[in-house]
Every structure is written in C-alpha cells, then in structure tokens.
Amino acid sequence: MRWLLARTIFHVRLTTVIYVAVILGAGSVAAQSYHIRPGDILRIEVLEDPELNRSVLVTPDGRISVPMAGTMRISGQPVEAVQRGLAARLSASFANPPNVFVSVERLAERRPDMRQPTEPKLISVFVMGEANKPGHFEIPENTNVLQAFAAMGGFTKFAAIKRVQLRRAAKIVPLNYQQIEAGSAAAQMTLQDGDVIVVPQRRLFE
C-alpha cells in the first residue's frame, strides 16, 4: 500500500514538472518568435553601469544608437540576438563581459488607414538619441520644433543640445536648443510627416 502511494506521488510530481517545463518552454518560444521592427522602443539595461540604461527607438532604417556601443542595424533580429550583439560591443569598455538585458518596451504603432473627418490631422515624427522620451510620436500638424522638444520630455545629461538635427528626407537642418530657447526663428519651424529629430551624444569636452 505504501509502495502504491509513493508511486502515485512520484507520478504526480513528474507530471507537474513536465507541465511547468512545457509552459516555460512555450513562453520562451513565443518571445524568440518576435523580430524587431522599425518604430519599436527597446529598453536596454547594463548591470555594471546603470548610466547606460535607457529606452531607444528603432529608427525607420532599422538602427539603434547606444553610447559606447555605437550604431547597430537590428531590424528583423530577435531580442536575444540584439542583446548578444550589444554585450559584444560593450565588452571592450569593461574588464569582464557586461550583463546586458534587452526587452521590448513598446511596439511600433500602426496608424489607421482612415480617419474621421472631425479628427485633427496627425503626423508621424520620430525622435532618437539623447532625448528623455525617444520614440514614435503622432502629433498634430503645424506642431513647431519647440513644442516637439516639450513632447519628447527634453534631453538627457548626455545630450549635445547645440547639435540637434532635424532630418527631413535627404535634408538635415541643424537646431541649437540654446538659441531656440532664447527665441530664435527656428523655434517656430513646423514639423512635417516623417521628420526625424536626432539628439547626438555629447563629446568628451563639449
């Protein structure tokens, strides 16, 4: 009788272990099946250097830019591959390979094909680099540069605020935030659909 009870308990425990393994395995497969797309927001955390922790935008051409790692093309890659690539690039700056964690903070938004006539017209603007809230924004048309800076939450301490760029197709418009804040005409420049605001990283003695 005791032997039969022990055998029953063993089978119950074994079934439970197998069930948990299947559930965890399914979750892992689901995570690996997602591939990064332009417009996604990734959360990057480096255990050895919290100052590198940030949210980054995957630009329309499928790239991200991270201090000490440079620019990487990651569109179409699974999150795990991006994580390994970042760790490899950052290794040169650490005594031991750093622990890098990458997750998808926000998926790229899809705009509806049709809008109600009463809704205000929106345009898509991308913000990348050293902004406090980089990402893809849907903002009303006629939004100016200064309003866009407010929407992205200002700049990080790494930002080169005198060398901000507005990229429109093949054209690059330099934006000096200090001059804009002082009232230069550039503050009233209106944004257009597809504009990209790039906030570069500050140089060592800048």
Score class of each variant (00 low, 15 high):
51 E>H: 12
54 R>F: 07
57 L>H: 13
57 L>Y: 12
59 T>G: 11
59 T>S: 15
61 D>I: 09
62 G>S: 06
62 G>V: 04
62 G>R: 03
63 R>D: 14
63 R>I: 07
65 S>L: 10
68 M>H: 09
69 A>V: 05
69 A>M: 07
70 G>I: 12
70 G>K: 13
71 T>H: 06
71 T>N: 09
71 T>S: 14
72 M>L: 15
73 R>K: 15
73 R>G: 10
73 R>M: 11
76 G>D: 08
77 Q>D: 08
78 P>Y: 01
80 E>T: 07
84 R>G: 02
85 G>Y: 03
85 G>S: 11
86 L>S: 02
88 A>E: 14
89 R>D: 01
89 R>N: 03
89 R>A: 07
90 L>I: 03
90 L>G: 03
91 S>V: 02
92 A>F: 00
93 S>N: 06
93 S>M: 01
93 S>F: 04
95 A>C: 00
95 A>Q: 04
95 A>R: 06
98 P>A: 01
102 V>N: 00
102 V>G: 01
102 V>S: 01
105 E>M: 01
106 R>N: 02
107 L>M: 01
107 L>C: 00
108 A>W: 00
110 R>F: 00
110 R>V: 11
112 P>R: 07
112 P>T: 04
112 P>Y: 05
113 D>K: 08
115 R>H: 13
116 Q>T: 05
117 P>K: 06
118 T>P: 00
120 P>G: 10
120 P>S: 12
121 K>F: 04
123 I>L: 11
123 I>V: 13
126 F>S: 12
129 G>E: 09
130 E>D: 15
131 A>P: 08
131 A>W: 09
131 A>I: 11
131 A>K: 12
132 N>L: 09
132 N>M: 10
134 P>N: 14
136 H>I: 06
136 H>K: 14
138 E>Q: 14
138 E>G: 10
143 T>H: 05
144 N>Y: 01
145 V>I: 13
148 A>Q: 07
150 A>V: 07
150 A>Q: 06
152 M>P: 07
154 G>P: 06
